[in-house]
Design a binder for these strands. Structure first.
Lengths: 182, 182
DNA sequence: TGTTACCTATCTAACGATAGATAGACACAA
DNA sequence: TTGTGTCTATCTATCGTTAGATAGGTAACA
C-alpha cells in the first residue's frame, strides 16, 4: 500500500470518527493530502469502497491490538481488561469515538456493504468478549453480558466525547469491573 | 404550532435518528411533506435552527415521559426502571436510536448551538439518574454509576439497531439490574 | 361597509458552493 | 513499453440559502 493511500485512509478515518460518514467528502480528503479529488477516486472508485477498506483496516488493527494486549493476561478478568484497554486507547489516543461506533449509529444511511462490515465487527466483538467471560457462566448469560460490555464501551466513548470529559470513560468502564460489596 | 411545522419536525427527527444530521436535507423533508424546500426555510431559517428546535422538543418530551413513568414508582430501583423504560420505548416504538445519541456521536461536525443542547440533554440525564440512585451511595460513585447507566442505554440502542436485533436492548438493560449472586 | 394594511403560508426561480464521479492527458519509473 | 500515480477539466446532481411573487386570512380604521 502506497504512502498516499495510507494517508488517505488516515484522513478519512479521522474525519468519519469525528463527524460521521456523510460529513466527509473526497474534496476535503484531497485538500488535506494536497492532491486532487480525482486522485482519491484513483484509489477508491466510490466512497463506499473507501468506507469498506476503512472498516477492514480498522477491524484488523483493532483485533491485533486486542490480541497483543491479551497475550500477557493471565486471568479471564485480565483478558477483559485488556479488551477494554484497546477501546480506551482508541479514545484517549485520538479524542475520537470508535469508527464502527459512528458507522453503527448511521447504519440506516450507509451503503449495505458498509453496514454489513460494521455488523460483522460488532459480532466479532461480542464473540471475543464471550470467550473471555468466566466459563462457569451459562452460555446465554455470557452473550448478554458480552453485549452489555460492548454497549457500555461504545456508549461511554460517545457520552465522554460529547461531554468533552474524557475521564468519564474511565469512570464508566471502571464501574464495569467493580466487585459488588458482599 | 401549525400542523405542517409539526410534521416537519417529525420528518426531521425520523431522518436524523435513522441516518444522522448530515444525511437529512431540506429538500428531502420538503418532498416528504409535499411542499417546497423554500417553505421549510419559512419555519426554520437555517438547518441549525431546525436542529435546535428538534432537540428542545425531544428533550421536553423525553423528561415528561420519564416523569410520568416515575410517578407510580415506589422504590429507587423502580424509578430507575421507569427511566430505562422511556429509552426502551423510544427504541422499540420507532426502530431508531435516541436523537441525542446520534447527534452526540456527530458532535464535532455540528453547529455549536446544537452540540451544546445535546450536551445539556446528557447532563440532565446523568443528573436525573443520580437522583434516583440509592442515597447511601457516595456522591462521586453515584455520578459514575449514572454515567454508566446512560452510556449503557445509548450503546445498547446503537448496537441493537446496528445488529438489527432489538431484543438485544432488553438483554443488555436487563443485565444492568441483575442482582449479583451472593 | 369598504378599504387599507399586515400576517401566514406557500410558491417559482435562482444563487454559489459542493457533492460524487468520469474521461483523458501527462510524467515517470520499472 | 507498460503500469502507476497524478493532473486538468468537466459532468450531473444536490446542498443550504435567498429573493420576490402570490393568495388567503385577519384586523384596524375611515
Amino acid at each position: 500500500m502506497s504512502a498516499t493511500n495510507e494517508r488517505l485512509l488516515d484522513a478519512a478515518e479521522n474525519g468519519i470518527r469525528l463527524s460521521g460518514y456523510h460529513a466527509v467528502s473526497f474534496r476535503d480528503l484531497a485538500d488535506e493530502l494536497g492532491i486532487k479529488s480525482s486522485s482519491v477516486h484513483y484509489y477508491y472508485r466510490q466512497k463506499e469502497d473507501l468506507g469498506v477498506a476503512l472498516v477492514d483496516r480498522y477491524s484488523k488493527r483493532f483485533f491485533a491490538d486486542v490480541e497483543k494486549r491479551a497475550e500477557t493476561a493471565g486471568t479471564d478478568e485480565e483478558r477483559l481488561r485488556a479488551f477494554c484497554q484497546t477501546y480506551r486507547n482508541a479514545l484517549t489516543g485520538s479524542d475520537r469515538i470508535c469508527l464502527c461506533g459512528m458507522l453503527g449509529a448511521e447504519t440506516c444511511g450507509l451503503p449495505k456493504a458498509l453496514a454489513d462490515r460494521v455488523e460483522a465487527f460488532f459480532n466479532a466483538n461480542i464473540a471475543w468478549i464471550s470467550d473471555a467471560l468466566n466459563a462457569d457462566m451459562p452460555a446465554d448469560k455470557r452473550a448478554a453480558r458480552a453485549a452489555q460490555i460492548l454497549a457500555t464501551l461504545q456508549g461511554a466513548m460517545m457520552v465522554a466525547t460529547s461531554l468533552k470529559k474524557h475521564r468519564l470513560f474511565d469512570d464508566i468502564v471502571g464501574a464495569l469491573f467493580e466487585k459488588p460489596k458482599s
